[in-house]
Computed example of a mutant assay.
Amino acid sequence: MKSKATGIQYISNNGGLIDLDIKVQRDAAGKILSGLVLGATLEQNMTCIMIAEPGDFKDNLSLGVGIRSALLDEDLLEYRRKIKEQFPLDGLNVKHLDLYNLSKFSIDAEYES
């Protein structure tokens, strides 16, 4: 299985929009040598899974926690369960999950080796 720990980077604009991180590198003749920024993807993949609603990912329609809905909910138990259920679908092992308050929470996860 190909590792998901490294890949194309995203950049967050001030408006909350997420886009590809592109830094164009050209040679002396002006030909584009590279453009997409590659790097560690663990944090951005976890964020995407947290934000996504089921059905957002075309290759895995059941993947997504839908944390935006938690803003209207007082019980975060369902979202802790969803995280522990959804992260392994992308190959992530949840080592620690502290989600009892939306203003301060932490998730420690890593990709399977």
Results as ranks from 00 to 15, higher is better:
Met1Gln: 11
Ser3Glu: 07
Ala5Val: 03
Ala5Lys: 04
Gly7Trp: 00
Ile8Ser: 13
Ile8Pro: 04
Ser12Asp: 14
Asn13Asp: 15
Asn14Ser: 15
Asn14Met: 11
Asn14Gly: 15
Asn14Ala: 14
Gly16Thr: 06
Leu17Pro: 05
Leu17Ser: 15
Ile18Ser: 15
Ile18Cys: 11
Asp19Cys: 10
Asp19Pro: 06
Leu20Trp: 10
Leu20Ile: 14
Lys23Arg: 11
Val24Met: 05
Val24His: 00
Gln25Met: 03
Gln25Leu: 06
Gln25Trp: 02
Arg26Lys: 09
Arg26Trp: 00
Ala28Ile: 05
Ala28Val: 06
Ala28Asp: 06
Ile32Glu: 01
Ile32Leu: 00
Ser34Arg: 03
Ser34Trp: 00
Gly35His: 02
Gly35Trp: 01
Gly35Ala: 06
Gly35Pro: 03
Val37Gly: 05
Leu38Gln: 13
Leu38Val: 10
Leu38Thr: 12
Leu38Pro: 03
Leu38His: 08
Ala40Gly: 12
Ala40Glu: 09
Ala40Asp: 10
Thr41Trp: 02
Thr41Lys: 04
Thr41Ser: 01
Leu42Lys: 09
Leu42His: 08
Leu42Met: 14
Glu43Met: 14
Asn45Ala: 07
Met46Ala: 10
Met46Ile: 11
Cys48Asn: 09
Cys48Glu: 07
Met50Arg: 00
Ile51Glu: 04
Ile51Pro: 03
Ile51Arg: 09
Ala52Gly: 05
Ala52Val: 03
Pro54Asp: 07
Pro54Arg: 03
Pro54Ile: 00
Gly55Gln: 00
Gly55Thr: 01
Phe57Asp: 03
Phe57Trp: 12
Lys58Leu: 09
Lys58Met: 10
Lys58His: 13
Asp59Gln: 12
Asn60Arg: 13
Asn60Ser: 09
Leu61His: 15
Leu61Asn: 08
Leu61Asp: 07
Ser62Lys: 15
Ser62Thr: 13
Val65Asp: 04
Gly66Gln: 04
Ile67Val: 06
Ile67Leu: 02
Arg68Tyr: 12
Arg68Asn: 14
Ser69Asn: 13
Ala70Gly: 05
Ala70Cys: 12
Ala70Glu: 04
Leu71Pro: 09
Leu71Glu: 10
Leu71Val: 12
Leu71Ser: 11
Leu72Trp: 15
Leu72Lys: 15
Asp73Val: 14
Glu74Thr: 06
Asp75Arg: 10
Leu76Gly: 02
Leu76Thr: 00
Leu76Met: 04
Leu76Gln: 01
Leu77Lys: 14
Leu77Phe: 12
Tyr79Phe: 04
Arg81His: 08
Ile83Leu: 02
Lys84Gln: 13
Lys84Asp: 04
Glu85Phe: 05
Glu85Cys: 02
Phe87Gly: 02
Leu89Gly: 07
Leu89Pro: 03
Asp90Thr: 08
Leu92Ser: 00
His96Lys: 11
Asp98Ala: 07
Tyr100Leu: 10
Tyr100Ser: 15
Tyr100Glu: 15
Asn101Trp: 11
Asn101Ala: 12
Ser103Tyr: 08
Ser103Ile: 10
Lys104Gln: 09
Phe105Cys: 10
Ser106Ile: 10
Ile107Trp: 02
Asp108Phe: 11
Ala109Pro: 00
Ala109Cys: 07
Ala109Glu: 00
Glu110Trp: 02
Glu112Lys: 08
Glu112Phe: 11
Glu112Ser: 15
Glu112Ala: 14
Ser113Arg: 07
